[in-house]
Design a protein around this nucleic acid. Sequence first.
DNA 1: CGAAAGCTTCGGTGGACGCCGAAATGTCCC
DNA 2: GGGACATTTCGGCGTCCACCGAAGCTTTCG
Lengths: 228, 228
Amino acid sequence: MTRDRDFTALGRALSTPARSTFLNLLMDGTRRPAGELAQAAGVSASTASEHLGVLVDAGLVTRESRGRHRYYSLAGREVATALESLGMVADAVLVSGYRRSRRAEYLAAARFCYDHLAGRLGTALTDAWVRAGWLAGRDELALTDPGAVGLRELGVDVDGAAHRPTTRACLDWTERRPHLAGALGSAVGTRFLEAEWVTRHRSGRGLDVTAAGRDIVRESWGLELPGS
Amino acid sequence: MTRDRDFTALGRALSTPARSTFLNLLMDGTRRPAGELAQAAGVSASTASEHLGVLVDAGLVTRESRGRHRYYSLAGREVATALESLGMVADAVLVSGYRRSRRAEYLAAARFCYDHLAGRLGTALTDAWVRAGWLAGRDELALTDPGAVGLRELGVDVDGAAHRPTTRACLDWTERRPHLAGALGSAVGTRFLEAEWVTRHRSGRGLDVTAAGRDIVRESWGLELPGS
DNA sequence: CGAAAGCTTCGGTGGACGCCGAAATGTCCC
DNA sequence: GGGACATTTCGGCGTCCACCGAAGCTTTCG
């Protein structure tokens, strides 16, 4: 039984721009083929393949063969939370150019953070639910009884989530504000996708809030989301 | 406003054995002079100095001049939590030899995790307080009213901690079990040191539970700590 | 003030690795 | 089955950096 942890392998895995880009792309919980990741990071396919091998060996990413594609995704929730807390210390990467900054703004509006809603949508929802008395606490959010009723009515699998740690307040990279995470956050995210209140954007990054989603949040909690 | 985080600088900072050792040594929240760190990592003073410069530049560690010594410590709570969650993914470093494994066992018994009690002492206390009804919840621990009374009687600055997020269940590297962290965990740790129920071991790593400490935990919650 | 201690800076060396293009492997589609 | 596609493996090049000893700087002590 030893206390120390060896950070060298993980550190090395994180230490190149291409691999950092890959991890950022996978932070939304999606899985992506090697070629797409290579293109996004601006490296050749062979280089990307080597990088992905490093990430798999480090245990940060898992590989999944599907036909002639190989899909990569984060290795699990622990990896996502580790990267998230690292992200609180790491610098923001500078985004230049019109298209890229448009995209960044788009992503900040609504996105998935591994398995739960994040971005402005995530923090706005969390704030609204705190105001509505569905969640209690400041940084550590607890689900109240009215909150359980309300979420259940929305179709969120509250009871399934209750068997595991329910809420976790997770700081948002862009907003630097807590938003709902943990098992309950995951259940909410699942429900929003299932009910098509949000849909994953074609590129896979970021979310589109659908008309139904806009209606729900306006009618239920008076949230006006900035235009489409 | 951008979403992506650049992990390269942090990853590079973590990617060598010497720097990983330094961070492990500093994880208990103490500050240590460069020479001591160099010796512990088994590198020359000059090499250690370069490494420490890298860690400072990466924002993981802060430098503090005191006379002819320069003390290094973790740069803050965010860094400690980031390393802790990384540690849940990282491998345990193998410890060989009698003395080192003795030391590892010693450390597992009682230690500080940045600012709160951890190791077997930390988890045992947390378990006892859950049994006593002082804390509620499984992974997310909430302080109950009797718990607030009890801790206040022990001299813990419960009210000071209440202004900030109070509890955080933080997984222990060695025990893989939740123990009390967050502001309340910090307040408890401060009180245990102040009352001399635990003292920092000479080497700075690990804690000695004093006779008074043993008495307190036995009488209050029936905890028998394994021999001195 | 001189010597010792603690630490950092500098110069040099060896190994590790990020990068690519080309070739090899495996999969799909006609 | 043949040809296009997705990905990995291989070989080679250039760069970066961890390491040390020696020298330099600052503080402490006699």
